[in-house]
């Protein structure tokens, strides 16, 4: 049975404090009917994984603008696997160079959204990915 509302943890890892993007997307997802938990600033990968577990998250949305994604994402993905949370959809927003995209995809980041992305595109991506996941499970 699918849940009535998708639960999304929006997290801002690392030391950067530029939270405009994280806050705008958090509000857009909430307005789109999702249950949004915004962790606030400066979360370690450990704290984000713990929040995802505790909040029973369907999605983790990371906002990283500082260039630290290549250190933070592998750590977080490892922790999610350790906690049995590999089914949580992880998406990333921020300033991410082209060259880093294949590596991020390979470690399990489902999508990367860069500056100028429409909020509707992110909402649609989350909805269709989670619906696909749910139908995949029920047909098993």
């Amino acid at each position: 049975m699918s849940k009535s509302r998708y639960r999304v943890v929006i997290a801002k890892p690392g030391l950067d404090g530029h939270d405009r993007g994280a806050k705008v997307i958090a509000r857009a997802l909430r307005d789109a009917g999702m249950e949004v938990i915004y962790t606030g600033l400066r979360q370690t990968p450990e704290q984000i994984a713990a929040a995802a577990l505790q909040e029973d998250a369907d999605v983790i949305g990371l906002s990283i603008l500082s260039g630290a994604h290549n250190s933070i994402c592998p750590r977080l993905m490892g922790l999610l696997r350790e906690k049995g949370l590999q089914d949580v959809l992880v998406i990333l927003g921020g300033i991410i160079p082209d060259a880093d995209l294949p590596g991020l995809k390979a470690m399990g980041v489902a999508a990367v959204f860069r500056p100028g992305t429409r909020m509707q595109e992110i909402i649609d991506f989350i909805t269709s990915s989670l619906e696909a996941k749910a139908s995949g499970l029920s047909s098993r």
Binding site: G14, L15, T44, G67, A68, H69, I72, R75
Partner: peptide, 16 residues
């Protein structure tokens, strides 16, 4: 105000 060996400095030293 964090030294490079603090956990929150992971991946951030010398970046921005």
């Amino acid at each position: 105000g964090r030294d490079p060996d603090h956990p929150l400095s992971l991946g951030e030293v010398g970046k921005c």
